[in-house]
């Protein structure tokens, strides 16, 4: 019986010269077993830090507070040893940069086998055999040959698949993929997203897909949350988020997706300005300076999460009207 991941009041703060940076503030989130969740936000929105905090992978100057319950375990108060049991085995994570996630001087097959030996106690022969199976599962052709190659001999898409194989090796209940498609060609992107869908369907693994690209997430996520400046600003079923977003930022994001049926020569809709620098304290809604509907209230009062008739959550004083 798979466990749900229940996050309440998660805060992540980094100590830097000059003060503290609240990378994640007051996040409540449920990840239900077998669910496929999309997490969307720009660089600096806290989307990666949120999940790094859960797995105890924050940098030395970071601190997490709040509650993250995975079944019976409170992850934030686990020892490193206890976390090692969970990491890689029950929760798998694929980090952002494939080249630096793989050890350059070990063959990729050995890197997959290493995880199996550590978590499942397999011997070398068994681990290599299982690694081969995993390679086939993530659709790496010519698996026997690829197992013996080094990371630099593989293309970007291939490396990403190897990382997926490592993350899936111990059949985790939750798979977290952080920007798995950035820096990949559009055709390879499509393939990786396909693969994630398949994994989700076939093994019932919950999948969390983190990306700055709403288009990529929309392909497989049933539910999507939008992060801005470290806070969740909207949490809704993906279809509804795309057709009628409530939060102004989500609406702007949806509008800025390039559409092939836009007239040639038309301008791309953009959001003026850039995300706030989190070192300086923010009063009120973080999006207010860039929001076309902002009022005085927005600049002073942090909007609380409200729930609408459809069960959607959003934090906005002047949400876009529902259709």
């Amino acid at each position: 019986m798979a466990d749900a991941l229940v996050i309440r009041g998660l805060e992540v703060r980094f100590t830097v010269p000059g003060g503290e940076v609240p990378a994640v503030s007051n996040v409540d989130l449920d990840i239900r077993p077998g669910e496929c969740l999309g997490v969307v936000g720009e660089s600096g929105s806290g989307k990666s830090q949120l999940f790094l905090a859960i797995l105890g992978l924050l940098a030395a100057n970071g601190r997490a507070a709040g509650s993250v319950r995975f079944g019976e375990i409170e992850l934030l108060s686990c020892t490193t040893r206890e976390l090692n049991e969970v990491r890689g085995s029950r929760i798998g994570m694929v980090l952002q940069d494939p080249m630096s996630s793989l050890t350059p001087h070990h063959r990729v097959g050995d890197q997959v086998a290493e995880v199996l030996k550590f978590h499942r106690g397999l011997d070398d022969a068994a681990a290599q055999a299982r690694a081969r199976q995993l390679f086939e599962r993530v659709r790496i052709g010519d698996a026997s040959r690829r197992l013996r190659q080094y990371p630099h001999e593989l293309s970007g898409g291939m490396r990403q698949r190897v990382l997926l194989a490592i993350a899936l090796a111990c059949e985790p209940q939750i798979l977290i993929a952080d920007e798995p498609t950035s820096a990949l060609d559009v055709t390879v992107q499509a393939d990786i997203v396909d693969l994630l869908c398949e994994v989700h369907r076939e093994s019932g693994t919950a999948v969390v897909l983190i990306s700055h690209d709403l288009g990529v997430v929309a392909d497989i996520a049933q539910r999507t949350i939008v992060l801005y400046a470290g806070r969740v600003v909207e949490d809704a079923r993906t279809r509804e988020l795309l057709s009628s977003p409530r939060h102004r930022y989500s609406a702007a994001l949806v509008r800025s997706i390039p559409r092939l049926d836009d007239a040639v020569g038309s301008e791309l809709a953009t959001i003026t300005g850039q995300p706030p620098d989190l070192v300086t304290a923010i009063t009120g809604c973080a999006f207010a300076p860039r929001c076309t509907a902002a009022t005085v209230e927005c600049a002073h009062v942090v909007p609380a999460m409200s729930r609408d008739a459809h069960g959607r959550l959003f934090a906005c004083h002047h949400p876009v009207n529902a259709q």
Partner: peptide
Amino acid sequence: MSDVAALALPE
């Protein structure tokens, strides 16, 4: 929305 707008920065 014109893009070429000066971006505000601490002084």
